[in-house]
Structure formats: structure tokens, C-alpha cells
Design a protein around this nucleic acid. Structure first.
Lengths: 219, 219
DNA sequence: TGGCGGCTCCCCCGCACGGGGGAGCCGCCA
DNA sequence: TGGCGGCTCCCCCGTGCGGGGGAGCCGCCA
């Protein structure tokens, strides 16, 4: 059962590129295209795609509004993969709050694009915007790859991040999870690398900004 | 021109106590009372108080809902001072998100209660819930005093907290503000003490949880 | 069967951090 | 006039933190 994808981008060139890359995969099928967010709702209703690859900047209705509209309109909405560039990273937070499931960088390599589509199709994928931003600084394509491939935390890392975001030290986390402090340090290091965070403070910021934790939700 | 206060608490004893304490001040005037949040809207319309001292737990409409209702109903709403106890601190975040302007602990001393009313009346007062919680742990009355009196940050401290909440190190903050690192350290220490935070990580958490910074608002 | 990723734990090392002091300058206000 | 709070900068000191290595165990899957 292939993953069905709807492409939404005002640039025909981008649509064609995405279609070519994705159609080359046996398990991915592009079922439709749209040139603006305003056309998304009826197309989703008609095509019922698994994933919508959604551009951010479009003339009539931008990707953020369209994301919101789709999630409002359908009880079981498709996964929304927001297609963005480093220059547009100010839209990332808005898209996240609108309910986007993942991010795709236009300058990513084909294999990464394919990977991203599969990831969001599988569900529960959270790509951290801070990782995008920090990795974007200077590293060029390296950044794109890392942002797409590495930004998924393991269960343990998620658990540790949650405790970091509650203000615990490594020793306290170790006690809480019944682990050695060295183990916690390992998880913290891995987690910081994946998030593109320099230290636990930046990790907490990323946790809040990405919606990984929400104000008021903590105990 | 005295500060006018509306008391909202289902406990008549509490109302009487607040009235006695506040009326003893020449610059504070209690203009009305209500026993439930459901009665607040018409009373605010009629009395136009500067401050509403609002209990959290009330039979018909709780303080959080009432706060929300008041802020929705009036273009220039009164300041909302939420009256709470340490046992009720789980309501603090909800009240903050509802738009409350400050917090008052029932076991606070009279002078502190008066101070809190004057503070919110002056505007722009933000009392940090994390400071409440951490100070509440064990210190008894000490905690109440500190939470009310110390939780207001100076301009410089607010500036530093904002930069901490953007992930900067002390050295980077110093460069940003054109200061010495030792100066930044002084501000950070003062700020941590006021917030009841152990380190900058907890300070960031407090900043988000209190609404001092909001997800998506950062640049 | 081998490889790989996740989880666990260990070492060494440098450093940013935070606490404890103190001090001088300025402006406000009693 | 003196006091006080805010802002600035300095010292010393301990340590939690994060990076750099490495290693063994397990389960999944090709």
C-alpha cells in the first residue's frame, strides 16, 4: 500500500521536482497537485492523501493557514509536511502551532525528501525547528540532512528531555529514571546533538518552541 | 485618588478580613463584594473597580473562568489579583493564562496584601508562579513575603532573562548588552533568586510557564 | 549469521556556571 | 543631608555540565 501525496506549491518547478523525486519510489504515489493553499480542502476531500507536502509562501492562502484549515476540516486529516527554506524559518513556529507534522527543506537531497515523506506518513514525527535553524547556520547541505534524519528522539531521549524541561539536573534525572548519571549524560549529549542545542537551556527552549512541552501542561 | 477594589470570595470571613486590612489604608477603597465569580461581570460594570481580588475556588464560577469572562467583557478591564493558597497552586498557571495580573497568598501578612494590591493597581506586575512554588516549599511565612515582595524584576534583570530565554550564555549576554560578564553574572544571580530558580534552565522554564516569554514569539 | 541501533556505563578534560563575598557610582526621595 | 535601590565591576571557589573517547548487552532484521 503506497503512501499517497498531495503537492501544494505555487511554483510549478518545485511541484515537478517533488513529483519526479517521489514518483521514483515504488512505495510513494503523487495523487495530486495544487498551486495554492486555497485549493487544498476540496482536493484533500477528493483524493484523501496520506501526506500533504505544503509550501509556506503562496499567493492566496499560505501554508500555515491552509494547514490549520485542513486540520479543522477533517476528522482524520492527512499528515502535513511543510516545505520550507532556511530563509523562511520564521514561519516554522507558526506552522508547528498550526499542527504541521514535519518539515522539509527545499534544498534537501532527494533521498532526504523521500525519507521525510515516509517519516510523516508513519506518524508521530516531530522535527525540531531549532535543529533546523542551528544546523542551517553555515553547514549548507550537511544541515539539511541532519535536520531531517537526526531530529527524531528515541523514547529514552524524549523522557530525558521531558525531565530536563522540568528543571532537573542530570543526577536528579538519573535518580528519577533509576539510571547511572553517566547514562543520563549520554542521553543528554545525544539529545542536544539531535536538537542542535548547545546546552540544556537551549534544549528547554526548543522543547517549548517546538510544542514538545507546552506552558501550563507541566505538573 | 484611591485604588478601588472589588472583593470576590465565597468565604465571608476572607472578604471581611481583606476589607478590614485594605480599608485601613487611606489610598485603598473596597467598593464592593461578591460571593461568586458568576456575579462579577455586572459588579465590575457597575462599580468599575481598579482591582478585583479574585478567589480561585468558588461554587458557581471559579476565579479562572471569571477572570477570563471579565477580560473578555471589558475593553479596559480592571486588574485581576488572584487570591490563592499554596495548596491551590495547580490553579496558578490556568489563572495566568486566563490573564490574571498577579497573585496573592491568603496567608500573606497584611502589609504584603496591601502591597500586592498597590502593585497590580500600578500595572505591569508579573508575579512568578515558580517563585511562589519553590519558596512555598518549607519556608512558611518567609515564602509568602518573598513571593510577593521579591518577584518583580528590574528592567535590567528582565532584559537578561529575555536573553537567557533565547539561549545565550553569560558571555554572549554581556556582548549583546555591552556589559562585563561579571555584571551579567550579578544580574543572573539576582534574577535566579527572585524567581526561585536553581539555575538558568529553571529560569527559562519559569519564563515560559509564567508567560514572560511565549512560544513562537521569539525571533 | 552479521550488522545496526538503542540502552547502559566508564574514563578524562576544560569550562561555563552559580554562590559567596565586596565596592563604587548614580539618581531618587525622605 | 543621608539612605536606598539599581547598575556596574571585581575576587575566589566548587561543581555541574558537555565533549571526547570507549565498551558491553540486547533485539531486530537483512
Amino acid at each position: 500500500m503506497p503512501v499517497s501525496v498531495l503537492l501544494v506549491d505555487d511554483d510549478a518547478l518545485v511541484r515537478a521536482g517533488l513529483r519526479a523525486i517521489l514518483e521514483a519510489q515504488p512505495d510513494i504515489e503523487v495523487v495530486g497537485e495544487a498551486a495554492d493553499g486555497a485549493a487544498v480542502i476540496p482536493l484533500v476531500r477528493q483524493l484523501a492523501p496520506d501526506v500533504v507536502a505544503m509550501d509556506v509562501r503562496m499567493p492566496l492562502m499560505d501554508g500555515i493557514e491552509a494547514t490549520r484549515a485542513v486540520l479543522r476540516a477533517f476528522p482524520a486529516p492527512p499528515k502535513i509536511l511543510v516545505v520550507t527554506t532556511f530563509e523562511e524559518d520564521q514561519y516554522v513556529y507558526g506552522a508547528l502551532r498550526a499542527g504541521a507534522d514535519g518539515f522539509l527543506l527545499k534544498r534537501a537531497r532527494p533521498a532526504e525528501i523521500v525519507h521525510a515523506v515516509r517519516l510523516v506518513a508513519e506518524g508521530e514525527s516531530l522535527l525540531f525547528p531549532a535543529a533546523l535553524r542551528s544546523l542551517a547556520a553555515g553547514h549548507g547541505n550537511e544541515g539539511a540532512r541532519a535536520a531531517v534524519a537526526a531530529a527524531r528522539l528515541t523514547d529514552r531521549e524524549s523522557e530525558v528531555l521531558r525531565l530536563i524541561a522540568r528543571g532537573l539536573t542530570n543526577a536528579e534525572i538519573a535518580a528519577e529514571l533509576v539510571l547511572g548519571t553517566e547514562t543520563v549524560k549520554s542521553h543528554v549529549s545525544a539529545l542536544l546533538a539531535k536538537l542542535g542545542a548547545r546546552d540544556r537551556t537551549q534544549a528547554v527552549i526548543t522543547a517549548y518552541e517546538s510544542g514538545f512541552v507546552a506552558p501550563g501542561a507541566a505538573g
